[in-house]
Amino acid sequence: MLFLLPPSETKLDGGSVGSRLDVAALSFDELEGPRRASLALLDEMSADVSAAAVALKLGPTQAHEVERNQLVTVSPTMPALARYTGVLFDPLDVGLLGDDAWNWAHRHVVVHSALLGLLRAGDEIPAYRLSHDSKVPGTSLKKLWRGPVSEVLAGVDELVVDLRSEGYVGLGPTGPRSTYVRVVSDAGDRRRALNHFNKKSKGLFVRALLTDRPELRDIGDLTHWAHGRGFVLEPGDETVLVAESVLAASV
């Protein structure tokens, strides 16, 4: 079973001394072509700092993000799951993960990057700034990624649990062996979609998976494990995850 996460706009600086991006070493080598095309577009866009700031929707205090992009192929790398920060990724506490958890994560957790496509948890990547809706020269990220990512996901021979935001789903819909997870708030008489606690709930949900490292074959196994954890997870046309259950069980 694969758990597919969106990336975060915020990322840690730094990485292993002497390291740099090795595109050919990344997982899902079918994506090497669009990865190199994406990097070339980022390099072209970053040549004009002012235009890049507009394309990336950066404020006046965020010029360093363009500098990051200018150095993306030579800056140091770290595992993808450690690179991303923010509301979804902070609950993972990756600095506290042991070898078994990292091995499980690399096998089962995939992050969908707007720059590099699908990344397994341990894939070594640099800091960068590019979002699903960033404006790149001469084309769009949807045109670049949608076909190749969808083809890879359609070929995955296991259930894909899609925890991405809808913007990243647009960069590569999943195949028939998948379920989209929608996080909701249970207000008693009605349910509503969430934003901030949507991300936090997903982070806590994945953290519980990294802690337990269950053997999961299908949505029934996932639902059974989740209920044992106190999470309300309801399969259907979309899989519903009730945020209050995750937040309460993780206190």
Score class of each variant (00 low, 15 high):
49 V>K: 07
25 A>M: 07
83 R>A: 03
160 V>Q: 02
244 E>S: 03
12 L>V: 12
146 R>C: 11
80 A>S: 14
83 R>Q: 09
156 V>I: 15
90 D>Q: 13
212 D>F: 08
117 G>D: 06
128 Y>H: 04
203 G>M: 06
134 S>T: 14
106 H>Q: 10
123 D>E: 06
76 P>C: 12
119 L>D: 02
185 S>R: 12
220 G>S: 13
239 T>E: 02
84 Y>H: 13
7 P>L: 09
168 Y>E: 01
183 V>S: 00
49 V>I: 13
26 L>F: 05
90 D>A: 14
139 T>N: 02
73 T>P: 00
162 D>F: 12
20 R>Y: 09
232 V>E: 06
143 K>W: 02
200 K>F: 01
129 R>H: 11
121 A>D: 04
17 V>S: 10
36 R>E: 03
60 P>G: 09
138 G>P: 09
137 P>I: 14
132 H>W: 14
153 L>F: 08
71 L>H: 12
117 G>N: 06
59 G>C: 11
1 M>D: 02
160 V>D: 00
99 D>Q: 13
109 V>T: 11
143 K>S: 13
247 L>K: 12
210 L>F: 12
191 R>H: 04
86 G>T: 14
69 N>L: 10
139 T>F: 05
2 L>P: 00
65 E>P: 03
213 R>W: 06
151 E>I: 05
60 P>I: 12
102 W>K: 12
30 E>C: 01
96 L>G: 12
127 A>D: 07
117 G>S: 07
67 E>C: 03
116 L>N: 06
43 D>K: 13
127 A>E: 04
40 A>R: 15
